[in-house]
Amino acid sequence: MRITCPHCGPRDLVEFSYHGDATLTRPDSASTDQDVWNAYVYDRANPAGEHREFWQHSGGCRKHLVVTRNTLTHAISGVDFAPGKRTGRKRS
C-alpha cells in the first residue's frame, strides 16, 4: 500500500503510522460530560467501506494526514493534511 503525502509525494506504507479515527471531534476541553468524553475516547464505528483516518508521515515530513480509505478494498480515495490553518503550507 502506498499513501500519497501531499507534502512528500507517494510513499510506502512503512513510512506512516496509523493514528486512529479522523471523523471524531474532540469535546470542548472544559466539558466534564462523561458520556461525551467516553464516546470520544472509546466508541468507534467499524465501517465496511469508506473511512477517514489519521496517518502521520512519521518517517517523512511528520505531518498528520487525513486519509480516506476503503476498508474493504484498501483503496485510498483522498489524502489531505489534518484540518487546520497549516494545510498545504510548509513549516520550516
Partner: peptide, 18 residues
C-alpha cells in the same frame, strides 16, 4: 513527540507552536 505533534496538527491547529 508524537503525542504533542498529534495535538498540534489535529486538535489545536490554531496554536502557534513549533
Amino acid at each position: 513527540m508524537q503525542h504533542l505533534e498529534y495535538h498540534l496538527d489535529c486538535i489545536w491547529p490554531d496554536l502557534k507552536v513549533h
